[in-house]
Nucleic acid binder design. Structure first.
Lengths: 131, 131
DNA sequence: CGGAATCCAATGGGATACTG
DNA sequence: CAGTATCCCATTGGATTCCG
């Protein structure tokens, strides 16, 4: 991924994709497992590690930890540690993370209107196995 | 990836991410190398294979072919073969592909306004090496 | 030109087990 | 509970070569 320490998120000139201004955002927001995690956090509010693990289908703790760390580092998620016994940790979307909501809404809108077209295109390309 | 022949693009129930309605779109539009290819096609219009290869930074012909095939299958890109000597092939965005433009605009808008915040968050998380 | 084929290296992610 | 530690496999992507 592009999270090299010597590069910034807004640096596009050295990316594997020159002349694609949205590549940096894609790396941050749409890398694997990030949208499900972000979405769950957005939909169910502040949650603990196990709740997230239960809700994000069959994600393993290892991968969930990785994604949460990345999201925390990027400032999209806030982690709160409560030093109790047993320890309690809560995750919630940050203000910056919440600012992605309209974008996600736009995305689901496009999905609602066009996903079936993608399906049709695929079937046609594959030789129309159905019907 | 999710392009299993037995599943449809609009099927969310069997995805690795239950309860994340935008996951299918993400798979289609934001899988690796697809946005640079799509963006280049959108920015420079109909192009040949080598032009794309030159413009999409240092993508290898193998990977470029894979992405183009997938985009063609999903109906986002149209491939036109001209049986000449030497053969000539042109790629262009489809109508469906063009319908993503507002989404991409939304994305660059978010990037313009928030990428620096991500950078700041990272620096803070990493211990503020700069300044 | 526009790829396909082959081989290979790196990475990511799954499974499992263990710990403070 | 909230992870960490290992091991391992599968997928991705790069490099190279070749072809119609």
């Amino acid at each position: 991924m592009g999270d090299n320490a010597t590069r910034t998120a807004s640096d596009t000139t050295t990316d594997p994709e020159i002349a694609c201004p949205i590549s940096p955002v894609v790396d941050i927001v749409f890398s694997r497992w990030t949208t499900p995690v972000l979405w769950t956090l957005h939909a169910h509010g502040r949650q603990r590690f196990v709740e997230l693990q239960r809700r994000v289908s069959r994600i393993t703790p290892k991968v969930l930890t990785q994604r949460l760390r990345q999201l925390e580092r990027d400032g999209l998620v806030v982690r709160t540690y409560h030093p109790e016994v047993p320890p309690r940790v809560e995750y919630e979307i940050s203000e910056l993370g919440r600012s992605l909501a309209p974008l996600f809404a736009h995305l689901s809108e496009w999905a609602a209107g066009n996903l079936d077209k993608v399906d049709r295109a695929r079937r046609e390309y594959d030789g129309d196995p159905a019907r």
